[in-house]
Simulated scan of single mutants.
Amino acid sequence: MTRPRLHAARGPAGTAILDLATGRWTTLDPIAAGLLDWPPAPAERAALIEEATAHWAATGADPALVHTDLSRAAADLDRLRAGRPVHQTLPGPPPTVRFTPDARPPLHVRVAAVAGLAAALLVLRFLHIRHVVAVARSAARLPGRPASVHNAEAAVAAVRAAGNWWPGRVACLEESLAVHLTAALTGRRVHWVLGARFAPRGAHAWTEAEHHVVGQDEDDRVWPYLPVLTVPDSNR
């Protein structure tokens, strides 16, 4: 079986990589992130390592330490990639972030939210992340049209209301996937996004509509996160 490709996004602080084969995140500082652009051929790689070592040595760095660190980072990336392509998300303007919505969802959205939350909890409990992404992509193919911010916030409010009856934890991954599924069940499409940040370091999942991030907690105002994988945009 072909291993799923890697998804990555690069920002000023470095690059975040999501490996769908393992569900693990890897973060690279800006220097290590540059290794992603290096050719895989050993001779070309060795020449570039020597060139980079000379550059950093000229700034006063220990050349032996630089050479060792670059060689180790390149080898680690080779093991991570294992010949797989890396899908890099191109940087774009950051979205507008909207915090906890004050919405009163209609009955059909509240009903859909119960089903959406139940489905999200089940697939996240029993399926590997690459299969979870496949489920989200399938939901994005259902008939419908792009959700407005109002539609998306109604779905968030409905999912949170349904989550009040759930005895377990409903964190960002569960909630955002449930919102994505709820919107799909009501004939709307939102973007389900998996991403990361560097300071402080952490992964996150959220939903977007009309280039607005919806339903963020008031106590989480550290933004932007790097969007690494977006459904349905990464469905190719």
Rank of each mutant, 00 (worst) to 15 (best):
G23R: 14
E175Y: 00
A147H: 02
A54P: 01
P39Y: 00
V123K: 05
L48S: 12
L77F: 07
N164L: 13
R24W: 04
A33S: 15
P91C: 12
V193H: 01
V114Q: 14
V193Y: 02
G92I: 05
R110S: 12
R24P: 05
Q216H: 07
T22P: 09
D76Y: 00
A8K: 07
V222D: 14
R188W: 02
R141A: 12
R84W: 06
A119W: 11
E218W: 05
R169K: 13
E44T: 01
D233A: 14
S234V: 03
T68M: 07
R3N: 08
Y225G: 04
A13G: 06
R189F: 03
L48D: 02
G215P: 07
G163M: 10
V213I: 13
P143W: 10
E218N: 11
S234K: 05
I17W: 06
S71H: 10
A73L: 04
T59D: 04
P101A: 06
T182W: 07
L20H: 05
E175I: 02
E175T: 06
L127N: 12
V179G: 09
T207R: 04
L226Q: 08
P224E: 10
A157S: 14
V193K: 01
A57S: 13
Q88T: 14
R79M: 05
P146W: 03
A103T: 13
L194R: 01
G11K: 04
R5Q: 13
A115C: 10
I49P: 00
P95K: 03
R10W: 07
L121W: 10
P30I: 02
A41S: 06
R5I: 05
L70G: 00
A112K: 00
G215S: 06
L107P: 01
R160F: 09
L121V: 11
W56M: 02
N151R: 08
V193S: 02
A171Q: 11
T207N: 15
G144P: 07
